[in-house]
Simulated assay, not measured.
Amino acid sequence: MKDDRVMSWPLFALAIAAFAIGTAEFIIMGLLPQVSADLGVSIPSAGYLVSGYALGVVVGGPLLAMLVGKMEEKRALLILMAIFTVGNIACMIAPGFNSLIVARVFTAFSHASFIGMAAVLASRIAPPGKEGRAMTLMFTGMTLANVLGVPVGSLVGQVYGWRTTFLGVVALGIISLLMVWYLVPAKASASKKNTQTNLQGMKRPIIWLGLMTSVMASASMFAFFTYIVPILQDVTHVEPKFASVALLVCGLGITVGGLLGGRLADWSLTRSLVLTLMALIAALVSFYWTSHFVYPAVINMAVWGCLSFCVGMLLQALIIRVAGESANYASTLNVGAFNLGNAIGAWVGGRVIDAGMPLNSITLVAATISLVTLVMVLGMFLSRDRSLLSYPSATA
Results as ranks from 00 to 15, higher is better:
residue 169 V to T: 10
residue 141 G to S: 14
residue 135 M to C: 06
residue 180 V to I: 15
residue 89 I to P: 00
residue 137 L to G: 05
residue 203 K to G: 02
residue 197 T to R: 13
residue 154 S to H: 05
residue 189 S to Q: 09
residue 92 M to K: 00
residue 171 A to N: 00
residue 178 L to K: 04
residue 141 G to Q: 12
residue 124 R to L: 10
residue 160 Y to A: 14
residue 126 A to Y: 01
residue 156 V to P: 05
residue 136 T to Y: 07
residue 199 L to F: 15
residue 157 G to M: 13
residue 156 V to F: 07
residue 170 V to G: 02
residue 172 L to S: 06
residue 194 N to K: 12
residue 182 Y to A: 10
residue 139 F to N: 04
residue 157 G to H: 12
residue 177 L to S: 09
residue 135 M to Q: 05
residue 150 V to I: 14
residue 94 A to E: 02
residue 170 V to Y: 03
residue 149 G to A: 00
residue 164 T to P: 04
residue 125 I to N: 02
residue 159 V to G: 05
residue 146 N to D: 11
residue 196 Q to M: 14
residue 103 A to Q: 08
residue 116 G to T: 09
residue 205 P to F: 06
residue 102 V to Y: 13
residue 91 C to Y: 09
residue 116 G to I: 10
residue 128 P to T: 01
residue 185 P to S: 00
residue 93 I to N: 04
residue 183 L to N: 05
residue 109 F to T: 11
residue 114 F to G: 03
residue 176 S to L: 03
residue 96 G to N: 15
residue 90 A to L: 15
residue 195 T to Y: 03
residue 171 A to Q: 00
residue 98 N to I: 11
residue 164 T to A: 13
residue 140 T to Q: 09
residue 142 M to C: 06
residue 128 P to M: 02
residue 126 A to V: 02
residue 167 L to E: 02
residue 128 P to F: 07
residue 148 L to D: 01
residue 105 V to S: 00
residue 106 F to H: 11
residue 146 N to E: 14
residue 136 T to F: 01
residue 164 T to K: 05
residue 116 G to C: 07
residue 149 G to R: 06
residue 115 I to T: 12
residue 202 M to Q: 06
residue 140 T to H: 08
residue 202 M to A: 11
residue 119 A to Y: 05
residue 188 A to M: 14
residue 133 R to K: 14
